[in-house]
Write a protein that binds this DNA or RNA. Structure first.
Lengths: 106, 106
DNA sequence: CGTAATATATCGTAATACGAAGTATATAAT
DNA sequence: ATTATATACTTCGTATTACGATATATTACG
């Protein structure tokens, strides 16, 4: 899959992964794997970006000797998902432009 | 509109703009404007990239004292559009993941 | 004892979209 | 006559960003 095509989906996808239940990095990657694969370095970069943008909050938890950072979506984060849905209408229009079959001359 | 979201569409969009008829930079921008706005610097970067990737060929034409470079899509370019269509199936699956309404607990 | 799974962090890099600015001609407006 | 707008392509620098590679640390499995 074309990397560029994935780009716009990543942030919204991560937010969607924590939308219904708080989650942590390692699990987010596993949950998204059937839909969208991403490397760890990419995920943690995104999580930091989303935190900086107040899309989510972080809470550290000690779990079996290991550190776990649980991410919780904020109202801003939920709004980001809605924004994504809005944008998608435009995206579909572009998609139709790309895939349209012209009856013109070639 | 989110820039990242546009990224994956740009190459395919430019190819679509010359698919049915050879065209040149200035006109491509105008043709795409209703669907997708892009700056000149972006377009010409993309055209060069597509040329380097053998997705299109270029032909210079003198038109009313001004230079025009006509772009013609190649078989490779047409295949790129088909590839885009294939990718879109996956994109739709991701879109559904992002927008699904879980019946679970929040 | 080594490998895999769990879990997060950091560094350097390559790709790339964009704004800004430049070059040049023709036409319309003031 | 001069200014602005439309046409048409080019180059430079920059910020964003996804990724591979690598590091750290614990637990479980063989």
């Amino acid at each position: 899959m074309d990397i560029q095509l994935k780009r716009g989906l990543l942030d919204a996808c991560v937010l969607a992964a924590i939308k219904n239940e708080d989650s942590y990095g390692y699990r987010i990657i596993k949950d998204m794997k059937p839909y969208l694969e991403m490397s760890e370095s990419t995920l943690y970069t995104i999580l930091k970006r989303l935190e900086a943008g107040n899309m989510l909050t972080v809470r550290s938890v000690e779990h079996e000797g290991r550190l776990r950072k649980y991410y919780h979506i904020t109202r801003e984060g939920l709004r980001r998902i809605e924004e994504f849905k809005e944008d998608w209408k435009e995206i579909n229009a572009i998609y139709n432009f790309i895939t349209r079959e012209e009856t013109g001359n070639e």
